[in-house]
Design a protein around this nucleic acid. Structure first.
Lengths: 339, 339
DNA sequence: TTGTATGCGTTATCAG
DNA sequence: CTGATAACGCATACAA
C-alpha cells in the first residue's frame, strides 16, 4: 500500500504538493510536477486510505441505512421484496453520488445509534421507525437524516420524510371494492402503526362515505412473521365464509393467502376477493394477478438519497414531508357482486 | 462527540489509561480508576471513532461484498431473490461476528478493487466472478477473500470457494425428467460460464447415460435481463410445441415462463413440463408449484463468512473448495409421459 | 510554485 | 499501576 509520503519521497517533493495534485488543485502546481506526480500515481496504483482521509476531514462518505429489525430474530429482512427493492435502489443511488452505503440493522435502537456515531456516518436514511425511536436517534445523532415512511408530528421535532399517500391508497382500494358491491371487507395488517394505520384510515373514510362503519371484527391484525403459519392460514379459510373480500396491506401477504385459499379449493375472485398493496412481483406472480396499489419504491429511494445529500450540503430546509402518489392497479382478484 | 482525550482531561488521567479501561485491560488498572472511568464513559455516551481506530490498527472491521453488476445498468440486482437472500444472510452473519458489511457493486472490476483497497477492507466475499476477474483482484488485493459460486482451476491460483453441487443438480433434475419419459428437453440459461455451465454438464451426463446426445438446438441461451421481453417469451410459446420439458437454471426464469405459457392457454405440466433451480419463493408462489433443485443459500452465506473470518485470523488454509449438497424437490410442474 | 507544521482520535511502546 | 510520546495517512493553514 503506497502512501502520499512514499510518493513524495520518491519524487523529492512534499506531501502537500502530491496531495494537491491528487485533488486536482493543479492551479497551484506547475505543469511539470503535475505530470511527474500523476505518472507515479498511476504506476504505483495509488489509492487513498479512506480512514486517514476521513479522520483528517471529520467525515466518512458513508450514508447509513438504519432499519429496526423485527423481533423474530432468525428472519432475513431482505426476503421481503419491499425491503430488498428499497435497499437495492438506495445502494445504487448512494454509490452514484459518490458515497458508500452501510447497513445498520438491529432490533435495538441504542445499538444502531452506537454504530452510526462510531462510523461518523455523514447522513442517515431511516426506515421502519416511529416516533419514539426517532426521538432517541435525534437525541444523540446530530447529522442529517431522512426518514422513509414515517409518520411523526411536526410539533415535536423537525424531520425530513419521504412518504407515500397511504391514506389515499387505502381509500381508493376500499372505494373500488365498495363500487364492486363488497360490503363485508376484512382489513388485514401486521400492525396498526405508521403506514398501515394510515391505509386503514383511508379504508375507514371510504366505508363512511358509504354510510358504513368499521366493525372491530373486520380489522384483522396478524403479528409479523406469523402469516405463513398454518393456524393463521386456516383461520383465513374459515373467515372466507364471512367476508366477500380480504384487503391486505402488502402484496406479500395477499399472495400467500391467495395461494393458500385456492389450494384449499376456494376460487379467487369467485368465492373470495383479495387485494394487495405495493404492486411488486408477488402480485404479478400469482394467478389471478392481484389487484393492488402501485408505488414506485425505486423512485422514492432515489428521492430520499438526493434530499439527504442536499441536507448534508445544507442546500435545503430541515423540515420536509413529501408524499408520493399511489395508483390503483386493477387486475383479476376482485369480483363484481351484482345485487 | 466526546473523545478519549476529553475524558482523560476531565479525570486527570492519561489517554492510555482511559484506553486501557475501554479495552478491558483492567489487570493493568486499579479498581478505583476503572470505576471512575467507566462511570464517565457511560455518562457521556462515549463512542470510539472507528476511523481513528482503524487508522491506528491498520484494519477496518469491514467485510466487503464484491459483486460484478450485470451490463444493463438500470437494473437493481437485489430484485433477484437469490441475490437478496444471499446479501441478507451475509449481512446478518457479518454483523454477528462483529464486522460490518459494505457492498461494492460495479460493472468494473477496477473500480471494485479501488474501493476495496481504499477502505482497507479486512476481507472480501466475491460473488459472480470468473477466472479473469478474480485474477485481477488477487493481483492487487492481498488480504483474504472467499468466493461464492466460482469455478476456477487450482493450478492457476489459490482460492477459497463456497460452491454448490451444480453438476449433480443438473444431473439429478435431468435424470428425473428422463425417468418420467421426457426426451426433448430444452435447457435454458442466461450464460454458459460458471454455475450454469456445470448444471449443463450434469444435464449432459444424464442424457448420455440414457444414450442420448445433447443437440445444439436444445441449449437455449437467453441474455440476462431479456427473459421478460415479449419476443423471448413468445419464442417459448412457439418452442413449447417441440419440447416436452423446459429445464431452467433458476426458479425466477422458470416462474416467468410458466406464468406466460399458462396465460397463453397452455397447461403445465399437461402441455409442457417446467423445472427450476434454487427452491426459492418463486417456485412456491406459482401454480403448479415448480419442481426444482433445493439449495440453502443462507447456510452457504454463513459458511462463507465463517471461513473468511477464520482466514483473517489465519486459522485455516488458503485453498479450500467446498460444494454444498443439492436436493431434488419434486412438485407439480413435471408430467409423467407414458409410452 | 513548493514546503513545513500541525491536527484528526486512537492505539501501542516503553519508561517511570 | 500510570503517563509521555510516537505513529497511523491525509489534509490544510500558513510560510517561504
Amino acid at each position: 500500500m503506497v502512501t502520499i509520503k512514499d510518493m513524495a519521497e520518491m519524487l523529492g517533493l512534499s506531501t502537500t504538493t502530491v496531495s494537491n495534485v491528487i485533488h486536482g488543485k493543479t492551479s497551484e502546481v506547475s505543469q511539470m510536477t503535475v505530470q511527474r506526480v500523476q505518472k507515479l500515481l498511476a504506476e504505483y496504483d495509488y489509492v487513498p486510505n479512506i480512514n486517514a482521509r476521513n479522520l483528517a476531514q471529520n467525515q466518512s462518505k458513508i450514508i447509513g441505512l438504519a432499519m429496526k429489525g423485527s423481533l423474530h430474530k432468525y428472519s432475513n429482512m431482505l426476503l421481503d421484496p419491499f425491503i430488498s427493492e428499497l435497499v437495492g435502489a438506495l445502494e445504487g443511488e448512494i454509490r452514484k453520488q459518490g458515497y458508500f452505503m452501510m447497513l445498520y440493522i438491529s432490533t435495538s435502537i441504542e445499538e444502531i445509534i452506537q454504530y452510526v456515531s462510531s462510523w461518523n456516518v455523514d447522513g442517515l436514511i431511516v426506515t421502519g421507525m416511529q416516533h419514539d425511536d426517532y426521538i432517541k436517534i435525534k437525541h444523540r445523532y446530530k447529522k442529517p437524516a431522512v426518514l422513509i415512511d414515517s409518520y411523526l408530528s411536526k410539533d415535536v421535532i423537525q424531520y425530513a420524510n419521504v412518504g407515500l399517500e397511504d391514506e389515499t391508497g387505502g381509500y381508493q382500494m376500499t372505494k373500488y371494492l365498495l363500487e364492486n358491491g363488497h360490503r363485508n371487507i376484512g382489513f388485514i395488517a401486521d400492525n396498526m402503526t405508521g403506514v398501515d394505520y394510515y391505509r386503514f384510515l383511508g379504508h375507514k373514510r371510504a366505508l363512511e362515505e358509504y354510510g358504513l362503519s368499521t366493525k372491530e371484527e373486520n380489522l384483522i391484525i396478524i403479528p409479523a412473521g406469523k402469516m405463513e403459519t398454518q393456524d393463521v392460514l386456516n383461520d383465513f379459510y374459515v373467515k372466507a365464509e364471512k367476508y366477500s373480500a380480504f384487503m391486505f396491506c402488502s402484496d406479500y401477504y395477499a399472495a400467500i393467502v391467495l395461494n393458500f385459499l385456492q389450494d384449499r379449493g376456494l376460487q379467487v375472485p369467485e368465492d373470495i376477493s383479495i387485494t394487495g398493496f405495493d404492486n411488486n412481483y408477488f402480485s404479478r406472480m400469482v394467478r389471478p394477478m392481484i389487484t393492488t396499489v402501485n408505488q414506485d419504491i425505486s423512485q422514492r429511494g432515489k428521492q430520499a438519497v438526493h434530499y439527504l445529500i442536499d441536507l448534508i450540503d445544507e442546500k435545503v430546509p430541515k423540515q420536509m414531508d413529501i408524499k408520493f402518489p399511489v395508483e390503483l392497479v386493477i387486475r383479476g382478484s376482485v369480483r363484481k357482486i351484482s345485487k
